[in-house]
Structures are given as C-alpha cells and as structure tokens.
Computed example of a mutant assay.
Amino acid sequence: MKKIILILMLAFWCTNYMNAQEWGLDFDEAQKIAKDEDKHIILVFAGSDWCAPCIKLEKQILETEEFKESVKNDYVLIKADFPRKKKNQLPESLQNQNKKLAEKYNKSGGFPLVVVLDKNGKKMGETGYKNISPNSYLDILNKMIK
C-alpha cells in the first residue's frame, strides 16, 4: 500500500512539474511558440551573477511555482542574461541575440527589466523588480496586455 501511495505521489508531482512553465533562452523559438499558441511573451533582462535586484526578482517571483503555474496558459517566458563572471559566460550566439534584444527592448540598459510583448514582438509594457508577491507581480504584467 505504501508503494502505491508513493508511486501516485511521484506521478502527481511529475505531472505538475512538467506542466509548469520553464524559461527559454532562444527568442525566435519563444516568438514561434507565442504565435502558434496565441500567447504573450515575458522577456526578462537580467544580470544573473552580479545584479542583486535581478537575483531577488528571480528567487522571490519568477522562479516560484506560484508564478510559473499562473503564467503557463498566457505567456511564453524568455530570459536575456548578461552575466559578468567569465565562468558564467553564455555561448557567443546567445550573447549576440541578447545584445540585439537589449538594443530593441532595453535601450535604457536597466536591470532587471521585465518586458511584456505581444506574439509579434510589439512591446506592451515594462517593469522592474518590486518587493511584492508573485501574484501581485503578475497582476502588474497582466494589466500591460489589456
């Protein structure tokens, strides 16, 4: 009986984990998914190894199951990371993509910057780090698309 309960719990956990939205790195792929599924895009500009507010935003909001579960039906998630430490450097192709994205969507160079785009890449709005709950943060993002 214990084995059956354990298997059921594991199956439930795996199903929920697999349904949660994950962060992508390829903007073209994210835009294709957004078009195919009629979703908006959340594009996050971050400095994962040097920007304290970026790290807080990620831990307190973006990486929570609460946030990822809430956005999975309406958004495609993508990060444009700009690490500074040599050991954390991205492949050159991702660095080039992220620079182009920053030139288009983050002209001010602010970090973190969370940009909401429509499925065609049109900017709907932007915000930065806020010390609020994941659901309150999502409310801000959702207002940008209405």
Results as ranks from 00 to 15, higher is better:
Glu103Gln: 15
Asn73Arg: 06
Gly109Ala: 11
Phe82Asp: 07
Ala80Phe: 00
Lys86Pro: 01
His40Pro: 06
Lys86Leu: 05
Lys85Tyr: 08
Glu37Tyr: 07
Leu113Trp: 04
Asp81Leu: 06
Ala34Asp: 06
Gln89Leu: 13
Lys79Thr: 10
Val116Met: 02
Glu29Leu: 14
Asn106Val: 02
Lys59Cys: 11
Lys104Trp: 05
Phe82Ala: 07
Pro91His: 09
Asn73Phe: 04
Ile41His: 00
Gly110Ser: 07
Ile42Gln: 00
Pro53His: 07
Gln60Leu: 15
Gln89Thr: 09
Leu77Ile: 03
Glu29Asn: 15
Val71Thr: 05
Ile61Arg: 00
Leu43Thr: 12
Glu66Ser: 11
Lys35Ser: 11
Gln97Phe: 13
Glu103Asn: 15
Gln95Trp: 10
Glu66Ile: 15
Tyr105Lys: 06
Asn73Trp: 05
Gln95Met: 15
Gly109Leu: 05
Leu94Ser: 14
Lys35Gln: 14
Trp50Pro: 04
Val44Trp: 09
Phe45Pro: 08
Tyr75Trp: 09
Leu101Asn: 10
Glu92His: 08
Asp74Met: 02
Glu66Leu: 05
Gly109Phe: 07
Phe67Thr: 00
Asn106Phe: 05
Val76Gln: 01
Ser108Gly: 14
Lys72His: 03
Ser93Phe: 13
Asn73Ala: 08
Glu65Phe: 08
Asp49Glu: 14
Asn88Ala: 12
Ala34Met: 09
Ile42His: 00
Asp118Met: 04
Val114Thr: 04
Ala52Asp: 10
Val114Glu: 01
Leu77Phe: 01
Lys87Gln: 14
Leu117Asp: 05
Glu103Ala: 13
Lys56Thr: 09
Ile78Arg: 00
Ser48Trp: 03
Leu77Met: 04
Gln31Leu: 14
Val76Tyr: 02
Ser70Pro: 03
Asp81His: 10
Gly109Pro: 08
Leu94Asn: 10
Ser48Pro: 06
Glu69Leu: 00
Leu117Pro: 01
Ala34Ile: 08
Leu117Gln: 01
Cys51Pro: 01
Asn106Met: 05
Leu57Trp: 06
Gln89Tyr: 07
Phe111Gln: 03
Gln95Tyr: 15
Ser108Asn: 15
Thr64Gln: 09
Ala46Leu: 14
Ile33His: 01
Asn96Pro: 02
Val115Glu: 03
Ser108Leu: 15
Ile61Thr: 12
Phe67Tyr: 09
Ser48His: 01
Lys119Met: 12
Cys51Trp: 05
Asn98Thr: 04
Cys54Tyr: 03
Asp36Lys: 11
Glu37His: 07
His40Leu: 11
Leu113Asp: 04
Gly109Arg: 12
Glu65Arg: 10
Phe45Val: 04
Val115Trp: 02
Lys87Cys: 10
Lys100Phe: 02
Lys85Gly: 08
Ala80Thr: 02
Asn98Glu: 10
Glu65Val: 14
